[in-house]
Structure formats: C-alpha cells, structure tokens
Nucleic acid binder design. Structure first.
Lengths: 109, 109
DNA sequence: ATTGTATTCAACCAAATGGTTGACAAGACG
DNA sequence: CGTCTTGTCAACCATTTGGTTGAATACAAT
C-alpha cells in the first residue's frame, strides 16, 4: 500500500481519524487537544496522527514542546477526482443504456 | 467499523478493489472476468467483492451459476458529501483568515 | 448420470492495525 | 538545578486483512 490514494482512503476509514479531520477543518490543534475528547491514550491518538500525516492529510509544525496539527485540505482533491471520474463513467454508461432502450422502443413502434 | 462510510473508505483503500470499481464503471462483469487480469486466485477476488458488497459499492445478481457484479454508483455521494463538507469548512476558515489579515493590513496603513 | 464451469466456504498463515503500558526526549518554568 | 508538560518511541497483544489451498455448492451440458 504505497500509493497516496490508498493511504488517504485507509486513513479516512477510521471513525476517530475522520473525526480528527473534521475538527481540524475548524481549527489547528495540538495532539493533547485532539486526544482530550476520546477515550483512548494520547499515544493512540499520536499514532492516528502519524497515519494521517503519512497520507498527506495533515502536517505538523513545532511550537516549543507542542506539535500543532494542520489539515492539508488540498489532498481532498485527489479523492474527489478519483471518485468523480468513475461516478461520471458509470452515469455515462446508463445514459448510453437509455439511448439504446429508447432506440429499441422506437423500433417497436 | 460498523458505519458505511468507514466500510466504503476501507474498501477503496485497496488498489485491486479500486481497479475493480473502475472496470465495473464501464460494464457489469462476472467474478471470473474480474479475476482474470490479476495475479491472484479467484477466491481472493471473491473476497474483495465481498468487501465491496458489504460496503454497498457493488451488488450481485444471479444468472445460472454466474454472479454478475454491478456497481452501485449512488454510494459515491456518501463520500463526496463527507469530503466536500470538511473541504468547504477548511476553505471557509482560510477565507475568514484572509479577512482577518486584510483587516490587520488596513489597520497598519 | 457424469463431467465441467462458476463461485463460495473453510481452515490456515503472515503481515498490518489499533490499542495498551512504560520509558524517553525536548522545552518551559519554578 | 529539578520538575512539569507535551509528545514520541518501543515492545507487546488481540484482531483484522489479504492471500493461499482444498473441499463443497449450484448449475449446465453432454
């Protein structure tokens, strides 16, 4: 699982990580702040953030002993492009199917 | 991992499964047809299809001993809605930040 | 009735995942 | 200096994942 698209999808497959992303869309936050509402250890959240960082969804800077986490929203485009491509492809297929059915109809008249 | 969104993201985190979805966007296909180009057993592909089916991304009908697989493209909306929501949220935040910075600039003039 | 084709089920295995606890590193601050 | 805060690293554990092979099921076809 080396490609970024796989990593991004895998990262968002976890509800806790999706929630972290949701909260980061409002404001940057430190690891401690992010961990606070969850019923898991700070280390576990730190691991989640590593997964998110590896996927490119977040970046971390440094402020003394704090590590503010920032959402890299540009990565969303990677997903939406993939999704839209095949969604469109599928839709187009049904459109073409409609045409075929219409033609069949016309031939039956 | 019970919620559908988690299942859909997890399903698409695998390159083989993404490729299957891509091919199904062109046309329905049987398990055997889908398995053919990959260097894994038919059973492995059958498992992949089970994951895709559990996520709601595909459905299977029956035609004698065949099990034609069909892409349920409506599930894409589930993802795009989630993504767009937080993408917009993040963008709005930067817009607001821009306003703040502009105001600071104005005060400095 | 036997054989062939398409697919799934079952048991197994190695690797990855998400969690834990304990120790450590880097700064802030008394 | 010593100590508190913030976060990561390391080792460990149970569960899940993606693959395998072999057996079983469900039809078709001869």
């Amino acid at each position: 699982m080396t490609d970024q698209l796989s990593k991004v999808f895998a990262a968002l497959a976890d509800p806790t990580r999706r929630d972290i992303v949701a909260r980061l869309s409002v404001a940057d936050a430190t690891v401690g702040e992010l961990a606070e509402p969850y019923d898991v250890s700070v280390q576990a959240v730190s691991k989640h953030l590593k997964v998110l960082e590896d996927s490119g969804l977040v970046s971390r800077s440094r402020d003394a002993q704090r590590r503010p986490v920032h959402l890299e929203d540009n990565v969303f485009d990677l997903m939406t492009k993939w999704i839209e491509r095949y969604q469109r492809q599928a839709e187009d297929r049904y459109k073409r199917l409609d045409v075929v059915l219409e033609e069949m109809d016309e031939n039956n008249e």
